[in-house]
């Protein structure tokens, strides 16, 4: 059940970021799909791969949605991506520092940075592909 819960997380962020109408629903849906992909790949492989694939899927979906619904990519991307951010890792790193458990703090900190970098890789890869696609078909990114 916890898998679909990123729908509500993304929905909440959509409201806070003032997304309106059908865009709000699609942004939340994108967040849910990201959560499902993350949990699915997490069962098969490591957490870094899961973060990478989930970020990749979310960015791809955001680009497709932007083209179909004629709205900026950001609208569908940001609220959906935030649930992937390793907030738990950040918290535990800090928690271990406070408790003077520096070994665990270092391990968790490095793990968190690794996860963040995996997300960055996912977005970078797909955004770069989008640029190449547009350049190849000589399409402006603006008048999608």
């Amino acid at each position: 059940m916890s898998v679909g819960m990123t729908f509500f997380a993304a929905l909440g962020f959509g409201i806070i970021f003032n997304i309106r109408g059908r865009n709000l629903f699609f942004a939340a849906l994108n967040g849910m799909i990201g959560g499902i992909v993350f949990s699915f790949v997490r069962m098969l492989g490591g957490v870094y791969l899961a973060q990478f694939v989930a970020a990749l899927m979310i960015t791809l979906l955001a680009i497709v949605l932007a083209r179909v619904l004629k709205a900026p990519v950001t609208t569908y991307l940001i609220a959906a991506l935030i649930p992937l951010v390793p907030g738990g890792g950040m918290y535990y790193t800090m928690f271990y520092i406070v408790n003077n458990n520096l070994d665990l703090a270092l391990a968790t900190g490095l793990d968190t940075i690794g996860q963040a970098l995996s997300i960055v890789m996912g977005i970078t890869f797909m955004s770069g592909l989008e640029l190449a696609f547009n350049a190849y078909f000589k399409r402006s990114r603006h008048h999608i």
């Binding site: 059940m1 819960m5 509500f8 909440g12 409201i15 806070i16 649930p83």
Partner: peptide, 17 residues
């Protein structure tokens, strides 16, 4: 509505974590 958004958001995250 913004408050409601924060509520929904944290509610979803708590289950996700």
């Amino acid at each position: 509505i913004e408050i409601l958004g924060a509520l929904v958001c944290a509610f979803g995250f708590a289950f996700f974590f």
